[in-house]
Structures are given as structure tokens and as C-alpha cells.
Design a binder for these strands. Structure first.
Lengths: 134, 134
DNA sequence: TCCGACAATGATAATGATTGTCAAAAGCGC
DNA sequence: GCGCTTTTGACAATCATTATCATTGTCGGA
């Protein structure tokens, strides 16, 4: 058993999914991405889209957000760890960084003896545009 | 139109749900709580449990967590806003406070002009006990 | 105390995203 | 090119949550 990942094959579908993720902006649901692929003429099964996204998420290549709405949203993000400021109304998302938060999370976890720490954080609000509309 | 909540009625079911929440520890799913109510002999419909929990959550009286597992978990928490440090393996949860995080979240949101800000944060890790078992 | 309006309940069906299944179809090392 | 293995994908299954809607229980006023 080795720590490499030799059993990873390059397939048309996998790069297709990866490719759409590069083109779209913001967060998209799995079903959304699947629809986009079909429009492009790429034949990819919905099941595969789910699997691929899950894989990418595990590998840390994409970000997953679980909004109160229900569906999981995926997005190709800048490499570094960061968080999101999401508009409740229009779903526009802004990437924000918070070194302080990272440090804090790790410190707190350490205090309690927790290891392999990760964390998720989403900030919800109403963006200026949507606030103005009301 | 007033800011009071006059159209809120006290029902047996509502206090039953509230009561179980006081007795249990840690997070429980809606279905879990429903099962507990039945054991106690309280006849409360599953639908009502969901509705009541939602109401309490909206009112800020209970906390909702959405772990990657799928179900929503509810818990009566200390009043103040706080976050959770959850063990990946045994689901043990520790309440933690982070004034710095609150401030940071609001600051960031304000910088982008966002209003009515709220946020969610969960820290996941492996607690000392579970880490030792492996 | 009684009454009537209306919120609340709850059994059941519906929803809908995600996961499981498994035979068929590609990749990759040789 | 060959064969072993992973991957794919159509479809069924799962399962928490929500919608429906007729019935029931509350509560404020008469």
C-alpha cells in the first residue's frame, strides 16, 4: 500500500466536469453542472457528475457549500483556504479570507485536544443591490 | 402590523417538543426527537415536530447544525451565539465561543456592504478519545 | 361560560436530491 | 494488441423533508 494515487484514470467525463467548473462562475449544483454539460453536447451521466464532484471535493480541488436551501453547491476556488460571503437574495458570493479565523479554529481545537481539524464557515447577508431593491 | 407575535398559540405538542429538548444532551435529529416523544407516550406527529423545530430555530431558541451526513441536527443551546467543535468519529460536540469570529464576520460583511448578517461555522476534528482508539 | 375564527395538528402523499446497483465500456501497463 | 481494473451510466432505491387538507384545539371576546 502506498500513499500515491496510481489508480486514477483520465477519462473524457472527468475532464469535462473539470472543464465546466473552470468556465462557470459562482456556485453550481451538481444538477446544474450536469445540465450545462448536456448543453455543450458532452454526454456525461448524472451519477458520474456526482461521483466526480465528490472526488474533486475530497481532493480539495473544489469547494462545497451546503446552503440552507438543500442542494450542495460546488465551485472551483482559489487554492488557498477561504470562506464565503453569500447574498441571501441573489446568491452572489464573495470570497473572503480570514487568517484570524483559521488560527482561532485551530487554537480552540487544540485546546480541546482535537486533531485533524477542518472547518466550514459561511456568512449570509443581503448584498447592497438586493437591499436597495426592497 | 405589530412586532409582537400574537398569533402564536400554546399547544401540548409544542411544549412537549420543547421539553424533550431540555432533557436530551447533544444534537438530535428531528426523527430522533420524534421517536423519543413516542417512547414517552406523547403523541406528536412527525410533521409537527419538524414544524416546531423550525419555529424554534427561527426564533433562535435552538441551534441547527447540518453535518455532511445529511440530516439536520437540533439542540437547545446556551442563549448566546456560539459555535461547535464536533468530533468526526463520535459526534461529541463542544460548545465554543469566538468573539473574534463574530466581529470579523460582521466587519467583512460591512466592508462589502452586506446587511442583516448571520453566519454559521462548524469545526470538525477527531477528539482525543477517538484518536487514541485508532 | 360559550362561541366562532383561525392557527395548529397530523396522516399521508409528494418531492427531489443523492446514493446504490451492476452490466457494459473504456484506460493503462505490459 | 490483450487483459485486468477502474469507470461509467441508466435506472431503481433511499430517505429526510415538505406539501396537502380535513379535522381539532386555542383563545379572545361576547
Amino acid at each position: 500500500m502506498n500513499t500515491e494515487s496510481p489508480a486514477q484514470r483520465n477519462t473524457r467525463q472527468r475532464s469535462a466536469v473539470s472543464s465546466v467548473l473552470n468556465e462557470v462562475e459562482g456556485f453550481n449544483s451538481a444538477q446544474d453542472l450536469h445540465a450545462r454539460l448536456r448543453e455543450r453536447g458532452e454526454r456525461v451521466g448524472l451519477t458520474t457528475v456526482y461521483r466526480t464532484l465528490q472526488g474533486l471535493a475530497d481532493a480539495g480541488e473544489i469547494d462545497v457549500m451546503r446552503p440552507p436551501g438543500g442542494e450542495h453547491l460546488y465551485r472551483r476556488c482559489s487554492q488557498g483556504h477561504h470562506h464565503h460571503l453569500v447574498c441571501r437574495a441573489c446568491a452572489r458570493a464573495v470570497e473572503v479570507e480570514g487568517p484570524a479565523v483559521e488560527t482561532w479554529a485551530e487554537k480552540v481545537a487544540a485546546q480541546h485536544g482535537f486533531a485533524e481539524v477542518s472547518h466550514t464557515m459561511e456568512i449570509f447577508g443581503t448584498c447592497p443591490e438586493c437591499a436597495a431593491k426592497r
